[in-house]
Design a binder for these strands. Structure first.
Lengths: 234, 234
DNA sequence: GATCTCGTACGACATGGTCGGACAGGACGA
DNA sequence: TCGTCCTGTCCGACCATGTCGTACGAGATC
C-alpha cells in the first residue's frame, strides 16, 4: 500500500533528522511532490505520529514514541483530564475516578473526592474488580485485544456495555454505593481509560436501580471531552 | 487519510497488547473487515513496523521501535553486513569499510582489512572528512534531510554522485590511496550507510584516474546485497 | 515595495485501497 | 480418520480516496 510506505518513509526521514524538518525538505528527501508530502504529514499529525513547532516544522510525535514504550502515559492522562474530572465532581456531587487497564488489572490512576465533608480515602493505585465495578466493566468491554468467545454471562455484559456506551454498578462492590462509568478514547479512537463517578446508591440510581439519566449524560459527556483532549476526533 | 489512520489504530492495538496478536483479533479491535486489516498489516510488515511470529501473529517491529531511539542500530548493521564485507575484501583485494552519518560526521562503523600481510590499523570509530572521501561523499549526497541550495561545487558533486550511484576518491585524502563507495539502503529505501573499498591508487583506479569498472560493480552489488539484508525492496 | 520561500488549501480524476468470497492449513473433538 | 471450526492469506472488481498541480497568504530578505 503506497500511502503507508510513503508515510513510513517520511517517519524515517523525520526520525533520522534528530530534530525538526520542513515540508519541503521532507518532500525532497522522500522524493514526493510537496503537496503529497503535506497531505501525509497532516494525517500523521492527526494521529500524533508527528508534531509541529511554531515555525511549522515537523518532528516525531509522542504518539509514535509512546508505541515503543507501552501504553498511554498516565501523567499526561491525569493532567489532560483534571479540569474535566474536577468539574464533573462539582456538578455531579459524586467522587470521580479515572482507571486504566494494565494487563488484566483495573487500576485507579486519578481520583477526585466527593465535594462534601465526608471522610474519604484517596485510592489512586487501587486495583478494582473488573467485573463488579462500572470502571472495570467499561475497560473490559472496550479492551482493544479482547475477542469474546463462547456463550457466557461475561459476553452478554460486554456486548451490552459496548452497545450502550457506559456501564452501571449497583451496589455490587461497595455496600450502599453505586457508580457509573464511560470510556475515554485516545487519538486513534481506542479506549485508553474509563471515567467513572460513585457515591451513595440513592444519589446515583433512580427508584428502579437504573442509572439517573442526568448523571449518565454528565459522565459520558465528560469522558468525550477528555477523549477530545487526548486527540480523539469522533 | 483513512488508510494511515487505520494503520495507526492497528499499531496502537498491537502496541497495547504488549505481545502478539492475530489478524482476526486486530481486525475486531479496530473494527475493520479481516482482509482490510490483513492488507494494512502486510504493508506494515513490509516497512518493518510490525513483525510476525511462526504462528502468523503480529507484534511491533524493530523498524518502528527504532524510530524513537534514533537511527539504525549499528550492531545490527554490522552483523547483517559482515558476510558481504568479508566477501568483498576477498574478491576485491582491498580494505572494506562501512560508514554512517551521525549528525554531520562520517563515522566508520565497520572495517575489514585488506587480505594481505600489510600493516593495517583498525579504524572503527574514526571520523572521516565528508567531502574528500568516497564514503563521505556518498553519505552527504544521499543524506535524507539534505536540500542543496545555491550554486556551488558541493551541489554539483552531490548531483553527480546521486546520478551515478557511487563515488570515487582519487588520492584526495590519503597519499597514494584511492577508494570507491556506494550507498546502503534500509527498508524504506533511504540511505542508512555507505559501503566502500580503499587501497593503493594503482589497484583501485584505471590509467585515467577513473574507477575500475570491475571494482565499481563489486562495491555497488555488495551494497545492494546488504541493502536487501536490511529489508530494502528496490 | 518587490521578490522569494515557506506551509497550506482546493478540487479534479485516476489509481490504489477496500473488502467479499474463496482457499489451504492447523487444531480439536467425535 | 473424518468433519468441523478457526486461522492467516490470496484474488479481483470497483469506487472512494489518495495524488498532486495550481494557487494563496505569511514571513523573511534585499
Amino acid at each position: 500500500m503506497q500511502s503507508l510506505e510513503r508515510a513510513a518513509a517520511i517517519l524515517q526521514v523525520v526520525a533520522g533528522s534528530g530534530g525538526t524538518l520542513g515540508v519541503t525538505d521532507i518532500a525532497a528527501a522522500v522524493g514526493l511532490p510537496k503537496t503529497t508530502a503535506h497531505s501525509l504529514l497532516r494525517t500523521l499529525l492527526g494521529v500524533r505520529f508527528v508534531e509541529q513547532d511554531r515555525a511549522g516544522r515537523y518532528a516525531l510525535g509522542q504518539g509514535l514514541l509512546r508505541l515503543g514504550t507501552g501504553h498511554l502515559d498516565v501523567n499526561e492522562l491525569r493532567s489532560r483530564a483534571s479540569n474535566w474530572t474536577d468539574a464533573l465532581a462539582s456538578r455531579s456531587g459524586q467522587a470521580v475516578r479515572l482507571a486504566t487497564l494494565e494487563g488484566e488489572r483495573v487500576v485507579v490512576v486519578h481520583h477526585v473526592f466527593r465535594p462534601d465533608d465526608s471522610a474519604q480515602v484517596l485510592d489512586v493505585g487501587t486495583v478494582l474488580p473488573a467485573d463488579r465495578t462500572a470502571l472495570g466493566r467499561v475497560l473490559v468491554a472496550f479492551a482493544p485485544h479482547r475477542t469474546v468467545r463462547g456463550v457466557d454471562p461475561a459476553r452478554a455484559d460486554v456486548a451490552a456495555v459496548r452497545a450502550r456506551g457506559w456501564a452501571v454498578e449497583d451496589s455490587g462492590w461497595e455496600a450502599g454505593a453505586a457508580g457509573l462509568a464511560a470510556p475515554v478514547r485516545g487519538s486513534t479512537g481506542l479506549v485508553v481509560a474509563a471515567l467513572g463517578i460513585s457515591g451513595p446508591a440513592e444519589t446515583v440510581l433512580d427508584g428502579h436501580r437504573g442509572a439517573r439519566p442526568r448523571l449518565v449524560a454528565m459522565v459520558t459527556e465528560s469522558a468525550q471531552a477528555i477523549s477530545r483532549e487526548l486527540g480523539w476526533h469522533g
